[in-house]
């Protein structure tokens, strides 16, 4: 069966070791992690949201969801990939160097990136977009002096009020 890319979010108790449990589950059972994002979302309730982009055949994705739900500090697991009610974004910092960075700046402006820092011998662009568009932006910068990239991984959320 063909691999599919899925974005899963897990609402978890923000307690010691919870990220290690999630990551250990993926490595221990041989699942892929394409990106992983984590942050506290409710300090009063001490909950965090972990967003994992993974890939695998449908049966494996189903197992990943079931295995995640089995972890004691995991409250809820959602698969956004085929849901029409979720949105996802990623941020990247992209560094371009060279004596003339004007072409890079023009291209960046066209693709919706902004200049975050331009004080030294390099320019750092910031882009928040769908992960595929981030990839396109990086490829566009490659011939224009690209020298480093830092990506946050995906954050995903529901469109619903609940």
């Amino acid at each position: 069966m063909a691999n599919e890319r899925h974005t899963l979010t897990a609402l978890v108790d923000n307690e010691a070791g919870v990220l290690a449990r999630v990551v250990g589950l993926f490595s221990g059972r041989g699942y892929n992690i394409e990106s992983l994002t984590v942050g506290e979302v409710d300090p009063a309730e001490r909950t965090s949201r972990i967003t994992v982009v993974t890939s695998g055949p449908p049966a494996v994705i189903e197992q990943i969801e079931a295995q995640l739900k089995r972890l004691v500090p995991v409250h809820a697991v959602t698969n956004w990939t085929f849901a029409t009610d979720g949105v996802e974004r990623e941020m990247a910092l992209v560094k371009v160097a060279g004596s003339d960075r004007s072409a890079a700046k023009q291209m960046a402006a066209k693709l919706g990136a902004r200049v975050l820092d331009d004080r030294g011998q390099a320019t750092v662009f910031e882009l928040t977009d769908a992960p595929a568009n981030i990839g396109s932006f990086i490829e566009a910068m490659r011939p224009l002096g690209l020298c480093d990239v830092s990506r946050t991984g995906v954050a995903a959320i529901s469109r619903d009020p609940g």
């Binding site: 049966a59 189903e62 197992q63 079931a66 295995q67 739900k69 089995r70």
Partner: peptide, 11 residues
């Protein structure tokens, strides 16, 4: 009793 066992090995 463990939902992750359903369809894990055999559909």
């Amino acid at each position: 009793i463990d939902a992750s066992q359903i369809n894990k090995v055999v559909r």
